[in-house]
Design a protein around this nucleic acid. Structure first.
Lengths: 121, 121
DNA sequence: TCCTCATTTCGACATATAACGAATTATAAC
DNA sequence: GTTATAATTCGTTATATGTCGAAATGAGGA
């Protein structure tokens, strides 16, 4: 029950749903997500920690940046089924569509922007 | 997004999860659910209205009693997939097991109890 | 070493939510 | 009609949650 509630509570916020669906595009670092959502970095960090606590996302630190991605589907069927369900549920949502475009822009257009997107190390 | 959030918020509470899984047994009236959860009738009624607003449950009034049941699977694939996911998620949960037994008792043992279980009209 | 910057943690505040009892509504029995 | 009762709605209270800015943490680069 505890795990279930961690997941459902994590999903009970529109910004966290947006983050989750944004991560379909692959790994994103915190500052990229901040850019898309337009929230304070501290707020986004809190959202990510809630998603992380529910095991809906994983993270890796590379240099100064922390990258978040959707949880490995092999880790838990319940989690991956749930993520798939969320993705299906937001089809045709306007905000989600806008986010998708913003993510594409943030990933490609920003080479040495505030957040150097693909800088390894 | 609105529908999705109505559902995830509805699922983000342990008592509502308990109600939802209790309804696997079939229709239950409010007073039966009150009996199992041990909450005030007004509280249970509020929980049910939240589940109803998310279209996770349906209801029918018969006489003075209002019966609630899980939403018709034909109504929405998203909703029924979600209910199935919840059911799978609570397998082996202690509280849920206890609820199942309480429900069985409440359904069968109470003929002219506080809530006459199967009284039509 | 010291500085810069991405991220997290902390403290504060506003809003949302769960719970209750009291009052209200609706239906049936008398 | 009047009464009894199942359920809902309302008002209140306590707790949880989302948000921010400021301070702390941690990893590179000068």
């Amino acid at each position: 029950m505890r795990d279930l509630l961690a997941i459902t509570k994590a999903l009970a916020d529109s910004n966290r749903i947006r983050i989750l669906t944004m991560l379909r595009a692959g790994e994103l670092c915190v500052c990229q997500i901040v850019e898309v959502l337009g929230l304070a970095p501290s707020t986004v960090s809190t959202h990510l920690s809630i998603l992380y606590g529910a095991k809906l996302v994983e993270s890796s630190k590379r240099g100064r940046w922390v990258y978040y991605r959707l949880a490995d589907p092999h880790a838990s069927a319940l989690v991956s089924d749930c993520i798939e369900w969320v993705i299906r549920s937001v089809e045709n949502d306007e905000t989600i569509e806008e986010d998708r475009e913003k993510v594409a822009r943030v990933i490609s257009v920003c080479p040495e922007e505030l957040c150097r997107t693909s800088n390894q190390s």
